[in-house]
Amino acid sequence: MIVVMAAGLSANLTANPFAAVTTITVQIVGLLTGDQEFDSPKTLAAFALGLVLFTVTLVLNITALQVVKKYREKYD
């Protein structure tokens, strides 16, 4: 949430950490706060972004679980 207040709104494809960029959360908030029809492209784009966030965390979590399974040592 902090990014909504701190990060910018300019969608910028850059590797420079000092350039103004935006985040997925900011984009979702920007797309959805306001008056739109539920099936408008804007709303659907917000849901697509949400799906991306969900998938990325799912992949990270599965990877983490694999790592834990591989290196966990049982003592009892």
Binding site: T25, L32, A46, F47, G50, T57, N61, A64, L65
Partner: peptide
């Protein structure tokens, strides 16, 4: 178990999207 761990780590805004789609719409 994987799903619970995943839901605990999902950015909270995704739950807002769920609320919008399911509870409101």
């Amino acid at each position: 178990e994987v799903n619970i761990n995943n839901l605990a780590a999902v950015p909270s805004i995704v739950f807002g999207l769920l609320g919008l789609a399911v509870f409101l719409n």
